[in-house]
C-alpha cells in the first residue's frame, strides 16, 4: 500500500468486530470438544510447574510448542487468513515460536521452573491462571457470546499470555529469545481490538508488558546479587 505510514490503525482494519468474534465462534463450534483437551493441557502445565525440575520444564515447553504450532495452522492459517491478509505472517511467527520453544525449552532445558523472585513466581502463576481461567470469561462478561470464548491452547491471546507466565517461572535465567513473539502478538492483538473498539483491548498488551517488566526486574536483581557475591 502506498504511503502506508500515513494510515491510522483503524484505516488498516479490514474486518468488523462482528466478523472477528464470529471467527472464534465457528472455530469453537467446529472443534468442540477440543477445548476440553486444551484445558487438560493447561492444567498439566500447572501440575508440572508444581512438580518442578528440569524434566517438568522440558514437558511444559513441549506442551506450549504444540499449542503454538496448532494455532499457527488451525487458527491463523485455516481461519484468520480468510479475513486478514497478514494472517499468513502471523502463522509463520507462531511456527517460529514453536520451534524456539522446542530448541530453548525442550532441547536446552531453559524453562525449568526456577523463579528469580517471589514476585515473579506469583506473577507467573497469576498470569498462567489468568490465561487459563479468566481470559475466556472476558468476552462473555462484556456481553459477547460464550461460544466466542478464547481459550488457552486454541486462541492466540491466552496462549501467548500463558507462555509469558511460564517464562516468569523460569525467570532465574530468562530465556529472552522466547519473549519477543508473545509480547509482539499481545501488542498487535491489543491494537486490533482497539481498532475494533473492543473494550478489552488493553488486557493482553498490559499483561504482556507487565510480564516483560517483571522478567527484566528479576534478571537485574539476579545480576546485582551475582555481582555482590562476586
Amino acid at each position: 500500500m502506498s504511503e502506508w505510514w500515513t494510515y491510522g490503525l483503524r484505516d488498516l482494519l479490514m474486518f468488523s468486530a462482528q466478523t472477528y468474534y464470529r471467527l472464534f465462534e465457528l472455530y469453537n463450534r467446529d472443534l468442540w470438544p477440543s477445548q476440553l483437551l486444551a484445558l487438560v493441557l493447561g492444567v498439566a502445565v500447572l501440575a508440572l510447574w508444581r512438580r518442578g525440575g528440569e524434566r517438568a520444564g522440558r514437558a511444559i515447553a513441549l506442551i506450549l510448542a504444540v499449542c503454538w504450532l496448532w494455532i499457527a495452522w488451525g487458527f491463523h492459517w485455516q481461519r484468520y487468513a480468510s479475513i486478514n491478509l497478514a494472517a499468513g505472517y502471523f502463522a509463520l511467527a507462531f511456527v517460529v515460536q514453536a520451534l524456539l520453544l522446542v530448541w530453548l525449552g525442550v532441547l536446552r532445558g531453559r524453562l525449568t521452573p526456577v523463579p528469580a523472585t517471589r514476585l515473579q513466581q506469583r506473577a507467573g502463576l497469576g498470569l498462567l491462571l489468568f490465561a487459563l481461567l479468566v481470559f475466556p470469561l472476558i468476552g462473555p462478561l462484556l456481553g459477547r457470546s460464550w461460544t466466542q470464548a478464547e481459550v488457552f491452547g486454541m486462541a492466540p491471546d491466552p496462549t501467548a499470555l500463558a507462555t509469558l507466565g511460564v517464562l516468569l517461572f523460569a525467570g532465574g535465567r530468562p530465556a529472552w529469545g522466547l519473549f519477543p513473539i508473545p509480547v509482539a502478538w499481545c501488542l498487535l492483538s491489543g491494537a486490533t481490538l482497539w481498532a475494533m473498539e473492543s473494550p478489552d483491548f488493553a488486557v493482553a498488551p498490559l499483561a504482556a508488558l507487565l510480564a516483560l517488566v517483571l522478567a527484566a526486574g528479576g534478571a537485574l536483581r539476579r545480576a546485582r546479587a551475582g555481582r555482590s557475591i562476586g
Binding site: M14, F15, S16, T19, R79, S82, I83
Partner: peptide, 13 residues
C-alpha cells in the same frame, strides 16, 4: 464492499 463483505468462510454471513 470494504470491511462489510470480508466475512471469510462464514456461510451465514
Amino acid at each position: 464492499s470494504w470491511i462489510t463483505f470480508n466475512v471469510g468462510h462464514d456461510r451465514v454471513a
